[in-house]
Structure formats: C-alpha cells, structure tokens
Design a protein around this nucleic acid. Sequence first.
DNA 1: ATGGTTGTACGACAA
Length: 258
Amino acid sequence: MRVATWNVNSLRVRLPQVLAWLAAEAPDVLALQETKVPDEAFPALEFREAGYHVVFAGEKTYNGVAIVSRLPPAEVADALPGAPDGQRRYLAATCGPLRVIDVYVPNGQAVGSDKFAYKLAWMEALAAQVRAELARHPLLVVLGDFNVAPEDRDVHDPELWRERVLASTPEREAFRALLEAGLCDVLRRITGEAGIHTWWDYRMNAYRRGMGLRIDHVLASPALCGRVRACRVDRAPREGERPSDHAPVVAEFDLAGS
DNA sequence: ATGGTTGTACGACAA
C-alpha cells in the first residue's frame, strides 16, 4: 500500500499537476494540504474521473486539507478535538485497512509570536488525538505538512536556522511528543541521510541553491513501522512548471498477511 | 540587502 502527502499551495492552481502526478505514481492514498478552496468549489469530479474517491475540509483563501483514496473513505472526521479554533487543518478517514490522518500544522510565523503559541497549542491537541487514535487503530498513518524540521540533519544550514521558526527547540519538542506517543518517522526507517528536503522557499532561488528543509512527514504506528518498504521525496514536480513550494513524500508499506 | 516570491484576490497578509 502506497501513501503520499503533498502541500500543493492552492489546489485550483495545481490541479493539473496533481492529476498528472496521480496518473504517474498511482498511490493508494494522497493527502493534500493548503488546498485553499471552499468545500462548495472543491474539484471532486476531476478526482472521481481519475478513479479516486476524495474527502475534503476547506475554507476560503487559507488552509484546507483533502484525502484522495482508491478505496472509499469511511469514519471521516474533519475537526481536531481540542484545537484552538476551527481552521481547516485536519482530516481523518479510514481507507481500507489504514486509518489516515492528514494534517496541515500551523506555520507559526516567528518564534514567540501569537501564531507560534497557536502552533504549539495545535500540536499539543494533535498529540492527544494521536494517542486516542492509536488506541483504536493499529494501522495508523499521520501525514502532512508538519511545519517542523525535526533535527539539524533535516535543515540545509542548521546554524542559519538555529532557533528560528520551523527548526526551534519548542517545535522540535512538540514534534518529538508525536513520536513519543508511539509514531515513527517513516523516512528515518529508510535512511539517516542528511540533506533530504521537502520544502524550499520560493524566494532567493532557494530550490536551485539547495536551501531546503524537511518539514513534510509520514508518521506511522508501530505495526506499520515494521512494514515500511520504501519512503522517498519526489522532487520532479518541484522542478516543473509553476511548482508548489513543497514536494510530495511517498511511503510504501507491505501489508501482505495483515 | 530587515531583502526575496507566490497565492489569494485586488490591498494586504500568510507562508
């Protein structure tokens, strides 16, 4: 079973790329973030014609998440219990054997800002929800844009990013709480390599200069972590025309016999 | 260089 996550930074702009990527990669599940489209304007028909079911939780201008799935999603939940407000950043669904939680963690803007406090509160609510979902679903994946580079090896220039938003100690502790709740970082089951990135700022030719961070993640429950076959960042869409600033992350699990 | 670019929606604001 192959699952993927991609912050598309406007589904309206990126829909042709997403459909082309689905056709080329054929994942079983694709979690999208920053769709930036209200539910009444979501392009559901285009996904159905591509052979996928889709559920979504969007709003005007900001945020927005969606789960695209070969198998029909069930037990859909579009709000994070205990979240500070109703921003559309969370979507859970059961897709065949997998419980899937798609997250768009708040960016946090700057360490110490109001938005930074909101981010930490949101992540604390997420950790509580992960504990609850883990108790009910042995095959759980939590994936999306976490807006946290967990360690220095996930940052192109650790000194430049030292204690800055996306790489600060409080954010890394909030991320580690998700792992301590029982999830593993699926990419780190495959490689300890430094310099694997999923996001590059649009400014300053950051992509061309290799100035990226690994902030998009696939986290998984213990039963899945023992069944990781592959995990990679697909940089091809980031190199194409009018790209999102994020690249997709794809993970494959061997579910035979489970 | 307190810079730069993109998306939303047409002026800031978020990222």
